[in-house]
């Protein structure tokens, strides 16, 4: 076979791979939405779940998902910005920096079930929180941190050096420069990172089963952080794996669609426009 024919063939194969990758994604999303959207009704989305009878909703689970996400972000964002700024602005090339980097990378690859068991030892048992919203949120923080640190570091590094030089030359201290110049300019990057993290955290299950538990409180909107707080993703797993309700497939279909729609909206609202913005800024050049 001549090189040219081979080249054509290889090109065709690569096109095929690209189409297959897009096709699998489209098929996945369409299947989930096709199965789940008919289930979505006001009563399902905002109703109370049921352990035995058919017709339960996911209102409390939906609330818990966002509540746990919010609490975990409240803890992880300041810590991650602190660590990210340190790595980008202060860290010199020494052993400590290397150790911190290695730790962040390692934390990012720890399987989430391991984080879940760790949270169970520390928060649920040792600190006596029991299966609780706060226990789940704090364990979820461990998942968020490494991603947020990396994103913050990258965003801070992307701020042009002459911005800092101008601020320092005006007599500002390093902290003033970071607070007034560097952080505001790295905000778009940090927000994108937070959205990506939030999407991941919303769908997280393995971490929460043994920390936030698989039951919900009596009210749909329950701000008590010490009560157990099953999330939507955990509910989807629980009804399929252990659930007794007769309409569990319906509930799983609906929960799946609701999760995917929520995450899609989150991504569309923040990630994609900010990507386009970043690319435009990048193309504009400095």
């Amino acid at each position: 076979m001549s090189a040219k024919v081979f080249d054509k063939l290889a090109t065709l194969l690569m096109w095929l791979a690209g189409i297959v990758i897009l096709g699998i994604l489209a098929a996945f999303l369409l299947f989930i939405l096709y199965k789940g959207v008919p289930v979505l009704s006001w009563d399902f989305i905002f109703g109370k779940s049921s352990d035995i009878q058919a017709g339960g909703g996911v209102g409390a689970q939906l609330f818990n998902s966002f509540y746990i996400l919010l609490l975990s972000l409240l803890v992880s964002i300041p810590l991650a910005i602190g660590a990210g700024v340190y790595l980008a602005e202060y860290a010199s090339d020494n052993k400590l920096t290397d150790l911190i980097r290695l730790s962040t990378e390692s934390l990012a690859t720890v399987p989430s079930i391991v984080l879940g068991l760790f949270g169970m030892i520390i928060f649920v048992n040792a600190l006596g929180m029991g299966f609780s919203i706060i226990g789940g949120a704090l364990t979820l923080t461990l998942l968020n941190l490494p991603v947020l640190v990396r994103v913050t570091e990258e965003a801070v590094r992307n701020v042009p050096v002459h911005y800092r030089e101008a601020s320092l030359a005006l007599g500002a201290t390093k902290w003033q420069t970071i607070w007034r110049v560097v952080l505001p300019n790295s905000l778009p990057g940090i927000i994108t990172g937070i959205t990506l993290t939030a999407g991941r955290a919303l769908g997280e299950t393995a971490i929460l089963i043994f920390t936030a538990g698989t039951t919900v409180g009596r009210q749909i909107v329950n701000f008590d952080v010490t009560s157990a707080g099953e999330t939507l993703a955990v509910h989807l797993w629980y009804v399929m794996a252990v659930g007794l309700v007769p309409d569990r497939v319906e509930i799983a279909n609906g929960s799946g669609a609701l999760l995917v729609i929520t995450i899609l909206i989150l991504n569309l609202l923040f990630t994609i426009p900010s990507r386009i913005l970043q690319r435009k800024l990048g193309a504009g050049g400095h």
Binding site: T205, A233, L259, V260
Partner: peptide, 8 residues
């Protein structure tokens, strides 16, 4: 792809 939850 990354955003789709693993339970889904």
């Amino acid at each position: 792809y990354v955003a789709i939850p693993s339970v889904v």
